[in-house]
């Protein structure tokens, strides 16, 4: 168990170190979400007067699209020099590889989300800083990372891998997107926390189920 976690940590910190050096994933996601915010503003000029109607939904649209961008890279980087095979050849459980990649994706997407939030506040002139948003954000992002990581591992072995991931990812993620957008809108309207317990429960179940299922399926997906 200890060596399992140590190896998860080794792969995770390798990903973080690479990312800090190249900033490839983070910069792509951050620039993309900035552009999305700008596009929203130009496309919905009338809504600037009533941001509470649109901001929760737009936030999750931006997170979803930016997230897919980063998820795609996470396995393409491994595939380019065959290093994914290097990982598979090492005495590491397949599930540890999934767990490490998933945690890396979770960290990167969360960072970009935290960068996007002030942008939204600033440009829509509507504060989205609310402590109640944090659990919604983290739990939703965990779901993104879990499904996104296994789908990225699947898509990387296909043709048109970069196009395929969003096509696979969005429909399956809909429960999280629906629940998270609803919860965000309730939190930002300062409605009582109890009102979003149903949504949080759903996201929680999603997170739990899709932590276990991909851990089991990962071997099937990457082995021949």
């Amino acid at each position: 168990m200890k060596s399992y976690l140590y190896k998860v940590w080794a792969i995770f910190s390798k990903d973080v170190r690479t990312e800090l050096r190249t900033k490839e994933i983070l910069s792509a996601m951050a620039v993309f979400s900035l552009l999305m915010v700008l596009v929203f503003i130009f496309a919905l000029p009338g809504k600037l007067q009533e941001p509470q109607d649109v901001v929760p939904g737009l936030l999750w649209i931006a997170f979803t699209f930016a997230g897919v961008l980063g998820l795609n890279r996470s396995f393409i980087i491994e595939k380019d020099r065959g290093s994914l095979e290097g990982l598979l050849l090492a005495p590491v459980d397949r599930s540890a590889i999934f767990l490490a990649k998933m945690l890396g994706n979770f960290a990167f997407i969360t960072i970009v989300e935290l960068l996007t939030l002030p942008l939204f506040s600033l440009l829509f002139n509507y504060s989205v800083f609310n402590l109640g948003l944090l659990p919604v954000l983290l739990m939703g992002t965990l779901g993104f990372a879990e499904i996104g990581t296994i789908f990225a591992a699947m898509a990387v072995n296909t043709r048109a891998r970069e196009v395929l991931l969003p096509v696979l990812f969005f429909p399956v993620m809909l429960p999280v997107i629906i629940a998270a957008a609803q919860a965000t809108s309730a939190v930002l309207a300062n409605r009582p926390f109890g009102e979003i317990s149903g949504q949080l429960q759903l996201i929680g179940i999603f997170d739990l189920v899709f932590l276990i299922v991909p851990l089991l399926l990962f071997e099937l997906v990457i082995e021949e």
Binding site: R81, G82, E85, P91
Partner: peptide, 20 residues
């Protein structure tokens, strides 16, 4: 999984991370 420690593999792919 630990049995893979008995094997070493060299292929035409390097398995290296270019940015490390």
């Amino acid at each position: 999984a630990s049995i893979r420690g008995l094997l070493g593999v060299i292929s035409h792919q390097t398995f290296l991370y270019e940015d490390l």
